[in-house]
Design a protein around this nucleic acid. Structure first.
Lengths: 347, 347
DNA sequence: GCCTGGCACTCTGCGGGCACGCGTGCCAGA
DNA sequence: TCTGGCACGCGTGCCCGCAGAGTGCCAGGC
């Protein structure tokens, strides 16, 4: 797949990628030798370019234009990266400052997506920490009306899920309190995966007055946590960036990218597939969606105490500055990790 | 401002608006008489058109093109509307079905924005019910770590606000429970505007072990509810629609609209200003933002039990079908009202 | 006095034709 | 194996001319 390339040819490929990313125009042999003093003449470069084209790493849009990288070309470039150029230190500091001191998890993730999109000028994607390995802190029941109770599930990552329970028969306030105690005594600090069954067990052994309520809670816990675990919460920021920067010509393309970004389920799926690597880079047609054939995703995991963590990433055009973007994504991931640790407390 | 227009001229203006909205192309005198059998010749229509142009209600992009409405022209058209054409009944039914049975407030509002955007094919804006006249149901305190407590505020509209409290000194679990009881005894069912002061009063009269905690809760209640009341939560759906439909030509325009849509504060401000009327229509330059000069906002209030309600609306191009959009927005507002009443229970 | 038919005018969009620039591919020679 | 030179292909910008659409205006009719 990646044939060991002649050293000079690899250099030429990298030069093409970098020039094209900067300028957005097909790059020709003459400009290449001028800017990268390669020590050879344009003619030599041309024959190398022909070889690179043969290998499928570059193309030209029409005969008399310069070359542009193909997805495979970008891939080769990215795989050859050794060091991602780090952020400027004042940027890194500003980043930490911005994330630290968020009042709650949602706000933290929102800020993260905002800062990442401004840093990269692409659309930022932030997935909330997954629950599957986290623990249930507390289940609160609030008696709103005779037959309706609000269940609030609090997880140790700071995440809060709420769910209305509608009961067939009225329930008394003190029974709600009994149920609350029974449930919390049994389920608090359990891994969320076990919580539904434990609550169901409590229901089975409970007196008749409270059993329907506890059963309803068990169902809510099962559904609420399951949906929270499967369909992780996604924060998208800066999608307007995709319309700027001159990356796309036709409105149609932009529209389909925006539409895709609105489909949270789809975006999550894309991120999930990408994250077989970490950090992950998925370029153009490597993405599972044809609508995103002109886009790339760069993503990295972050970890959270007690959970399996989440993902931060960006969606940008294939013609992106990969080293810079990788650096930004990784920096944001690690800052988020720190801010998250601070937020959930030492515990 | 709106000079009493000759009846035929008004008819011609309306015809121009409707033709232009449908077709998107400047409309000429000939087509007009053919499609709207006006009973006069094109030449007559032309002289009327000249008068309408003189009055600032229409323009033409260049000499030999047909006419298009100006913002003032749309305004005249909208003000002259008597009946908004109602939704088809199966659409209305589907609407109600979709909104009923949402598990919680957030999900309901999310669905509302989704359905409204699909109904109109514009960007949907949904503002959560405001809290200022609602009541506090319950304050839950969860002891996460010795010096950190999570405060969860539950409001009778079903809205939940959460806030981390970091204390200077450790606090014991049973003191957290004491504080919780004291606070809820005093503050439950109070209007949210009074809650902060009441909680502060509880703090003043509390024993020293729990006073710092209750003071922290008071501060959190003050800040949490204030920010929730001022910066209402906004749900935006279907913004990708703004890139389709051929309304905008240049990518620049689309980008600035998207950027504006991402600024929740700005959008909220626009909606707030618009809602001096109900239902409200703000056309092009009537909006307070130059970036939205090519857009219109159609919005309507909905009310919530115990609160002052919220807003639903759409942002679309000035070239929109106002009667249809008005009907859709109003239908969604009233369905949302019903679904909300069902969600928060009879109470 | 208002409406109508006719006519001249203006502007856009489209297709053809031409020169230009750019970048390539190839080849002979070092 | 690299290099300089040369011919080729192709897209771009420009000008031109032409058809089409729509207007403005004016003289004439009801």
């Amino acid at each position: 797949m990646a044939p060991a390339l002649d050293e000079r040819r690899a250099a030429i490929l990298n030069a093409i990628v970098q020039d094209y990313v900067r300028g957005g125009e097909p790059v020709g042999s003459k400009r290449l030798v001028e800017e990268w003093n390669l020590g050879v003449s344009p003619a030599t470069v041309r024959s190398d370019m022909a070889a690179l084209e043969e290998a499928g790493l570059i193309t030209h849009p029409h005969t008399s234009a310069g070359r542009i990288p193909t997805d495979a070309g970008y891939r080769h470039f990215v795989d050859g990266l050794t060091a991602t150029e780090p952020l400027r230190s004042e940027q890194a500091a500003a980043l930490e400052n911005l994330l630290m001191g968020s009042p709650d998890l949602e706000e933290l993730l929102r800020r993260t997506s905002s800062v990442l999109s401004r840093l990269t000028r692409f659309a930022a994607l932030v997935v909330a920490p997954r629950l599957d390995r986290s623990r249930l802190r507390h289940i609160e029941l609030v008696h709103l009306a005779p037959t309706s109770v609000l269940a609030v599930l609090i997880v140790d990552t700071g995440r809060v899920e709420k769910r209305m329970l509608e009961l067939d028969a009225p329930v008394a306030e003190h029974d709600v309190q009994r149920a609350r105690h029974a449930i919390n005594d049994a389920a608090a600090n359990l891994p969320v995966a076990q919580a539904p069954d434990v609550v169901a067990g409590v229901a089975a052994g409970a007196p008749a007055e409270v059993r329907p309520l506890i059963e309803a809670v068990a169902a809510a816990v099962r559904k609420g946590l399951a949906s929270a675990m499967a369909g992780d919460q996604l924060f998208v920021g800066g999608s307007a960036n995709m319309a700027g920067g001159g990356y796309f010509e036709r409105l149609e393309q932009v529209k389909s990218v925006f539409e895709t970004l609105e489909e949270q389920v789809v975006v999550l799926q894309v991120l999930r597939e990408a994250l077989e690597d970490d950090p992950a880079v998925r370029i153009g047609t490597e993405l599972p969606l044809v609508e995103l054939a002109a886009c790339s995703v760069v993503a990295a995991r972050y970890s959270a105490t007690g959970g399996s963590g989440g993902t931060v990433g960006v969606l940008g055009p294939t013609r992106m500055d990969y080293p810079r973007t990788l650096a930004a994504v990784q920096a944001v991931a690690s800052s988020l990790e720190k801010a998250l640790a601070e937020l959930t407390g030492a515990s």
